[in-house]
Design a protein around this nucleic acid. Sequence first.
DNA 1: GCTTGACCTAGAGTCGGCTCTACTTCGTAG
DNA 2: CTACGAAGTAGAGCCGACTCTAGGTCAAGC
Lengths: 129, 129
Amino acid sequence: MGLSIGQVAERTGLSVHALRFYEKEGILAHQVHRGPGGRRVYTQRDVDWLRMCIMLRMSGMPVPEIRRYTDLVRQGDGNELQRLDILKEHQDRVRQQMVQLQECMDLITHKVGIYQDYVNSIAPRAVGQ
Amino acid sequence: MGLSIGQVAERTGLSVHALRFYEKEGILAHQVHRGPGGRRVYTQRDVDWLRMCIMLRMSGMPVPEIRRYTDLVRQGDGNELQRLDILKEHQDRVRQQMVQLQECMDLITHKVGIYQDYVNSIAPRAVGQ
DNA sequence: GCTTGACCTAGAGTCGGCTCTACTTCGTAG
DNA sequence: CTACGAAGTAGAGCCGACTCTAGGTCAAGC
């Protein structure tokens, strides 16, 4: 049940450096406890939490904001409204990002179409030969 | 028809610093020419190009790759296939990004739902009072 | 008893993409 | 003529998120 930092790195895709960095930055909800020789011992719960953090990071939530959220979780019951606020705000930002990304995609697809047509109109008869 | 750097900054949303930076990085397809006193004079074409660059940047294309693309455009006809390759590759990356972002969105929406339900179950009767 | 490998800490270094500073040069307005 | 504002250049600085280095501990295997 206890996982070494290396094992956690493996199953989250984070580097051991990043894991120590995240801990220092305070974005682990539960204190990682230490085994013999001061080695970190992670639980499955830590891995699950990290996977969520990875999602938040991937969608552009900055580390300090993940920390704010983590702090609330660490403090325990009673601040659900604040957690909800953070999540909703982030949700909005992600929505905007998706819209922007879709716009970029449309432009790119448009240009790809144009170039594709042009390239087809130039080369393809050679393919048949 | 000739625009100053300040005007271009206004209508692209880039800073004048960023505009000079982009030029130095070689991501302007056509050389910006200079008016009296060595001042940059931009055309509408430059603005259009910049807007496309902004789309590419927004969707995560790194500056050096925009430069590669720009170089091809600058070199003129004959390399359309290479331009197409760059665009298609980027298109793939954007597609992946969108999938990832959607996954993040799903998780966040899920959590928002849970917190929302919880918060509703605790507070709302107070609202009626 | 020596090496290896996985771990530890503290802190320095890297990278991308701007952003800002310092200083200069203009052209116009007061 | 003085001041202002908008430009110019070269190059330094900044920020976020890691990544890496240096030097050390410890258990297991040869």
